[in-house]
């Protein structure tokens, strides 16, 4: 750790386990056909990794939709997570051995900042806790390794329990708390908002899940919303993205309803720099984009 703490980079890093499956890493038990359905997204992650390799990070902070909590925002509070992660939704694709360090100090600091800001919070101390596959997948795809300690933040159900507007307000407050804690502790942080954009799935899967003949957007409406949001990202219009977030969520069943993108935009302080879109593609009909905000 050197110099003042800051967010070095923020990445919209979707987590379909399909992408890890398609990459055939040794940690994942299932083997893919390499038929190529998600080639564009895999290439996008390659481009991202090439750029991130040139930067130094002390910590990766992930906000994940697959750790769903109703009673507040939870933070990983155990020093190491290790084990076998089997995705309960796509167990045929993702059975992954993982072992990664956790930055408990920063997790506790964000938790404290968020609590001081009026949010309901909780540190997760159970050593048996099953780390969600969204955290594992986005971390692996973005960096290609698990050497950098992580902070994992749960996805509070506020959008679902109250409203999209209430959810955005809370996620912006959580983002600001994240930024304050990073700065106070002097960490150089990579933020991962791990979610899809449009998020309507097909409910059937072909015999070869990687069959490119099957893969396409669920419908044109989903694509149009995704194109619109990506164009705002390219133009540095993050405030407008948050302004339109409630409509985006309703318009295309967006997974941003789980809060990750708004959290990251809040933490980055509504950056106006053009974001770099490394790739866009669909996975079982959902729209996924790999987008980088280089704040370095």
């Amino acid at each position: 750790m050197t110099g003042p703490g800051r967010i070095v980079t923020g990445v919209l890093a979707p987590h379909p386990p399909h992408l890890v499956y398609a990459a055939n890493p040794p940690q994942n038990e299932p083997r893919s056909s390499r038929a190529g359905a998600w080639k564009g997204l895999l290439e996008g992650y390659e481009k991202l990794r090439a750029r991130l390799t040139a930067r130094e990070f002390d910590v990766v902070v992930v906000h994940t939709p697959h750790w769903k909590t109703t009673v507040g925002h939870h933070f990983l509070g155990i020093p190491r997570c290790k084990g076998l992660s089997v995705d309960p939704i796509f167990p045929n694709l993702f059975r992954f051995q993982f072992d990664l360090p956790v930055d408990v100090e920063l997790g506790e600091a964000i938790c404290a900042e968020a609590a001081a800001g009026g949010l309901v919070t909780k540190m997760m101390r159970n050593p048996d806790f099953r780390l969600d596959y969204g955290t594992i997948t986005s971390n692996y795809l973005s960096l290609g390794h698990f050497e950098t300690p992580i902070v994992a933040i749960s996805s509070n159900r506020v959008y679902f329990d109250y409203s999209n507007e209430a959810g955005d307000r809370e996620m912006l407050a959580l983002g600001a708390a994240t930024r304050r804690a990073i700065e106070k502790l002097g960490k150089r942080a990579l933020l991962l908002a791990t979610c899809s954009l449009s998020h309507r799935h097909f409910t059937q899967e072909p015999a070869d899940p990687e069959d490119p003949a099957f893969e396409h957007p669920y419908n044109a409406n989903q694509t149009r919303w995704d194109d619109h949001i990506l164009s705002l990202m390219r133009n540095g219009e993050t405030r407008r993205i948050v302004d339109e977030m409630p409509d985006f969520i309703e318009g295309c069943v967006s997974e941003t309803r789980d809060g990750a993108l708004t959290w990251m935009i809040g933490a980055m302080g509504f950056p106006t720099i053009p974001a770099i879109v490394h790739g866009y593609g669909t996975v079982i009909g959902t729209g996924n984009a790999i987008v980088e905000w280089d704040l370095s």
Partner: peptide, 8 residues
């Protein structure tokens, strides 16, 4: 298994 909310 550990509950997402009630892990304690």
């Amino acid at each position: 298994e550990v509950d997402d909310d009630f892990h304690e």
